[in-house]
Design a protein around this nucleic acid. Structure first.
Lengths: 229, 229, 229, 229
DNA sequence: TATGAATGAGCTTTCATTCAT
DNA sequence: CATGAATGAAAGCTCATTCAT
């Protein structure tokens, strides 16, 4: 999880010939990867550019060949990792055939698999830690991630309410019943988790299961329950 | 929220005479207050000690008179603001007479009033942002806050399960159905919130209400509902 | 001439008591002195800030305590050394009782004594070397030095022409018959002079004398000459 | 003045065929041209080798193919542009048939046409700005330019004195009555001139005329004047 | 030859920390 | 106790120079 070693370019098969070329094109990506890890781990200010370069396997100077400043590097890291997957998801959910409860479960699981479990999740921690220092970026993140993300979830909930599958909800706020557990999981993964004793580590899949169960069924016992799955 | 002046200790009626001496004794506290605000806002590394001193109304030198280093200042800030209120709360809940559902609601509301709405909430953001840079502090926080906090909540849930008021739960994970919304609210308050447009600001009390509703009753419609409040 | 050693503060009599205080007030001046010498000698870009600090007897950090950047230091050096002496000179010349020829001689000699022979003359070389890199400063220098300087000299010449003591002149250009030798002398003093063999060193007073003689009398022999002095 | 493109060698009729090869041989010259312009404009230290290469239309690497270092490039620029034309001029003046006054005028005009008005004049500014940083070069310049130049002018003056056309002069210093206006004109052209308002721009030919007039006839009115030209 | 990606010494600037007053 | 001038290690960034292609 957020390995501290330079990402080995996968299966670096390198016929000695074209190596230089391939490197050149890979450089920005390798630098962004290294920067993401370090920014997430230590924060923007505490990360030294030289360290980013070193982790990407290049020298200090090379970093500045591709990014004119540490701040621009930060911006690039954020932008790079916010490839709007929301459109794709939107489609997926529009075609979804199951119940809204299934959609909620599916949504949370899929999020974990495609974002939460990957390095991209670090961006969330990054943004939360640095938003006040980079208001323009925070606004960008708000636009590109938060707004479409909450909108997507709002629709899922609204669909359930409209169909009568869900009770009438304060939809605006209920969105966070899905978002908050997800964001919390990321925070654990990237900050306190690595510092916690074994018995406090979360098991992400079970965690998500429980969050979904509680959200859908509530914790209160019910007279007659058909309940989950 | 995050006032820019040292929080005047409440009702500091300031008879002009004794002010100087009182000030002197208040110094460390004023410094810790100023430091908390700044660390929360900008992070540890990006906060300059001179700014802390200035906000506390003293000179740079004075800061180092009370705290031998910026790192020690940070630790003091964290320690100072982790008042183990859990003992007191433990008592409160032990004497609590209502249903477990009421306890959950009460717990969340009380947390908001006594922590969430105050400057102390900044500590959470601080720890999440800086845990990796201060592992000892993270462990301390784990000990003093997370462990007793989750324990407290676990008991509430367990009580409900034992009494049959709650259905059988994955109690370990369900704790986070309460914790996550709370932590998420703090994060919003201290990082993205101040950068967000008006219509994305959370209304804390309604937010908590919705979180509690959803947690207790679930979002799925029920055959016969007596539901909330 | 532009000594390469730190200017020893003269007779540093320093009663041990007030030293810190006195230093503090002297710092900016000492730094400006050091910077002037080095900028004149090596040019702006080739002068390292640390060297300026060292020559002023302080550390690198201290320099930036008084001047926010190397460029601001440069500007301060130029401004500091352009104390508009032209007003004072204007008066002096207005009250001048002798012939216009005497005025020309006096003007050149006085310039040498009060500017040329002092460190202030370095500013001229500095501006000429760096004007293209600091157009705003060049404009400032144009305004504050060149314009009033040429104006002053133009009046002297015009006075001579008006009184019939001088022949009708192309006054606009003739101004440079006085300015050019002066500027040239500075250039020699600050650039090639220190690199030239002994026998090519100018003797400033004789040089000025010759320039004035030639300007006033011309080099061509005259039928009947009362000539110089 | 100081064109921003490599000066195309005159009449480079460019039959498309042979261009490539010719280019190759022209490389060093183009680099020297570009370097001269930039060194004159910005000084040695502030000129980036990449910019020199770019202006010469080649890559950074190519520059170092022809010149082993920036310093060597600088030296080459100076050497290249110090063509000892003095031999040729010497001959010209030896055969000169007119009066010594005419020689002085001719000398100044010719200098302007053949040096002053060309890019070669930049060398003077360059040497004056950088002499202290390149003492060996300064010595070289002294040898190759200053010494023969002043010698040449000294002979002109001495000829006039010997023939009785000029009055007895301090010949050593009087040389600078010719040199100083010339050098001053260059300085204006290359440093403050481009930063000055329109009305402070010199008209070189009139300027030279006035300098020569004043030098030959002096500014003082004469009883009977046969005067100039 | 020519290129331009890569390097790293070196420079400007910052800021935690010290200490004379 | 309190100050703030002074320090210098450390960080961001530049650019002359190298070298694989």
């Amino acid at each position: 999880m957020a390995s501290t070693k330079p990402l080995s370019r996968p299966a670096d098969a390198d016929e000695p010939a074209a190596r230089r070329e391939r490197r050149k094109e890979a450089r920005p990506g390798e630098l962004l990867d290294a920067a993401l890890d370090l920014f997430v781990e230590k924060g923007f200010a505490a990360t030294r550019s030289e360290e980013v370069a070193a982790r990407a396997g290049v020298s200090k100077g090379t970093l500045f060949l591709y990014f004119p400043s540490k701040e621009e590097l930060f911006k690039a890291v954020v932008r790079e990792n916010i490839s709007g997957r929301f459109g794709e998801w939107q489609d997926e959910f529009e075609k979804f055939e199951g119940t809204s409860a299934e959609m909620v479960r599916y949504c949370m699981r899929v999020w974990w698999e495609r974002i939460g479990a990957t390095r991209a999740s670090g961006i969330t921690k990054l943004m939360i830690s640095e938003a006040r220092n980079f208001p323009e970026l925070a606004a960008f993140y708000q636009q590109e991630v938060i707004r479409p993300g909450t909108e997507l979830i709002r629709r899922i909930l609204q669909r359930g309410v409209d169909s009568g599958e869900f009770r009438p909800l304060d939809v605006d706020n209920s969105v966070y019943s899905i978002v908050a557990p997800i964001v919390f999981l990321i925070m654990m993964k990237h900050s306190l988790g690595p510092c916690s004793p074994q018995d406090y580590q979360l098991d992400p899949l079970r965690y998500i299961e429980a969050m979904a169960d509680n959200l859908l069924s509530g914790v209160c016992a019910r007279p007659a329950q058909e309940q989950r799955r």
